[in-house]
């Protein structure tokens, strides 16, 4: 089981702040997230592509879509931001 936290517009658009899921790679999390988002917020316009575009951190370190996960990992997903 890994713990996922969402940030940026992804969080506002899915209505999801955090959740737990079973997955052995980051990529496996995406369909789970999408399904959960559609359950919580049926009108969500978030697509798989949007989730795919997110920055990933695993246990405080930069991760990627292909990164492997193990039990107890914490995954942060952040939609891209810029400027300030």
């Amino acid at each position: 089981m890994v713990h996922i936290k969402l940030f940026g517009l992804l969080r506002l658009d899915t209505g999801l702040k955090e959740l737990d899921a079973e997955a052995s790679t980051v990529a496996q999390l995406y369909p789970i997230l999408l399904a959960e988002a559609r359950r919580v917020k049926p009108a969500t316009k978030v697509t798989a592509k949007d989730i795919d575009g997110c920055t990933v951190m695993i246990n405080g370190k930069q991760g990627r879509k292909s990164s492997r996960l193990k039990d107890g990992d914490q995954v942060l997903l952040m939609s891209p931001v810029c400027g300030g």
């Binding site: 940030f7 940026g8 517009l9 506002l12 920055t55 952040m78 891209p80 931001v81 810029c82 400027g83």
Partner: peptide
Amino acid sequence: HPLTGNQLPRLGTAGLVSAMQM
């Protein structure tokens, strides 16, 4: 534009805090 038409209006510059943390 995703930044000037979406992120900045919805989160303001405060939206950068989490990204900066990462």
